[in-house]
C-alpha cells in the first residue's frame, strides 16, 4: 500500500500537499502539447500585417512575438488546430503535414 502510494506520488511528480497546492510554479510548461500535431501551420512573415488575429484565437497561447514585434509560432506547444490559419485575413499562414 505504502509502496503504491509512493509510486503514485512519484508519478504526480511531488508529494500530496495540503489542499492540493502545487508548489512548483509554471509546471504546465512541462506539458509539450506540440508533440502529437498532424498539421503544422507555417507563418509567412512577408505577408503578415501584424493584425494579431491568430494570437488572439490560439487556444494554447502558442503564437508569440519577438521583441521586434514579429509574430511566430511556438511549435513546442502548437497542437496544429489551424484556428490561426482560418482566422488569418491575409492568408499569411499555410498548413503542412507534419513529418514524423
Amino acid at each position: 500500500m505504502a509502496k503504491e502510494k509512493n509510486k503514485r506520488e512519484k508519478k504526480a511528480g511531488q508529494k500530496l500537499t495540503l489542499g492540493a497546492v502545487i508548489l512548483e510554479p509554471g509546471s504546465t510548461r512541462n506539458y509539450h502539447t506540440g508533440a502529437w500535431r498532424v498539421y503544422r501551420p507555417v507563418l509567412d512573415n512577408s505577408k503578415c500585417v501584424s493584425c494579431s488575429n491568430c494570437w488572439k484565437v490560439c487556444p494554447d497561447a502558442a503564437i508569440k512575438r519577438t521583441p521586434e514585434g514579429k509574430f511566430y509560432i511556438d511549435y513546442t506547444y502548437c497542437k496544429g488546430c489551424l484556428l490561426c490559419l482560418n482566422e488569418c485575413g491575409v492568408k499569411a499562414i499555410v498548413k503542412e503535414v507534419e513529418v514524423k
Partner: peptide, 11 residues
C-alpha cells in the same frame, strides 16, 4: 504557486 488544481482519480 498553483491553488485549486485538478486531482485525478489516482489522487
Amino acid at each position: 504557486k498553483t491553488f485549486g488544481p485538478i486531482a485525478f482519480p489516482d489522487s
